[in-house]
């Protein structure tokens, strides 16, 4: 099914070699390779993680999309499925994990909490969405998203990968990707970019 898209380069292939030759573009074959082996980081935060486990289990089985290899180590993972409430206490760890993942890496915010704070948003220990910390590729609303909704989101991610061009994705440009500065646990969660402002404010006090 998926190879169909792979083998339509827009060039005419002579009839007599059609069975033996395939022409594709680098982008296509490369994206195809990536989208068919997205390995998620084995990483559950809250309630949504249970639905993630259910999705990985027999009934919904996301190994049908090449995603069954859940990696406990960020070094071997391509996808961070942020499944649950991101708390301030957990925030430094999440950024650290993200920094440790090798490129190309993707982030899916699963559920209301990871997308935008969720029902607990008003709480003092809750980060309003994981996109406050790391870049997010796909947002899946729901609380929790059912396994089918999660798979729908993962298919969206695959579509996104399909549309990428190896020349202009972030991680193939020259130079190292800067690691995301890790926020600190102070009197509250302190983002590195807030430091000057906080310094100003506390001087006045």
């Amino acid at each position: 099914m998926e190879t169909k898209g792979l083998n339509s380069p827009g060039y005419e292939i002579p009839d007599d070699v059609k069975g033996a030759v395939a022409i594709t573009t680098i982008d296509r074959i490369y994206n195809w390779g990536r989208r068919s082996s997205v390995w998620p980081l084995m990483f559950g935060l809250a309630c949504c993680a249970i639905e993630m486990i259910a999705t990985a289990a027999g009934r919904y089985d996301f190994s049908r999309f090449g995603m069954e290899v859940m990696r406990p180590s960020p070094r071997q993972a391509d996808l961070m499925l942020v499944s649950g409430t991101v708390t301030k206490k957990m925030a430094p760890t999440i950024v650290r994990l993200y920094n440790q993942m090798p490129e190309p890496k993707y982030v899916v915010a699963m559920g209301a909490c990871a997308s935008g704070g969720g029902p607990f948003k008003e709480g003092y220990n809750v980060v309003s969405g994981v996109d406050k910390l790391i870049p997010v590729d796909v947002y899946i609303p729901g609380c929790p998203p059912t396994p089918q909704a999660l798979i729908n989101g993962l298919i969206k991610l695959q579509e996104k990968i399909d549309g990428q061009h190896w020349k202009d994705t972030r991680w193939y440009r020259e130079g190292d990707l800067a690691a995301i500065p890790i926020p600190m646990l102070g009197p509250d969660l302190i983002y590195q970019e807030q430091i000057p402002a906080i310094k100003e404010a506390s001087k006045e006090a």
Binding site: S115, G116, G129, D131, D137, V138, Y139, I140, P141, G142, P145, T146, Q148, A149, N152, G153, K156, K160
Partner: peptide, 10 residues
């Protein structure tokens, strides 16, 4: 309808 995943906040 649960198929509402998107590339941004909703």
């Amino acid at each position: 309808d649960y198929e509402i995943a998107s590339y941004g906040r909703t």
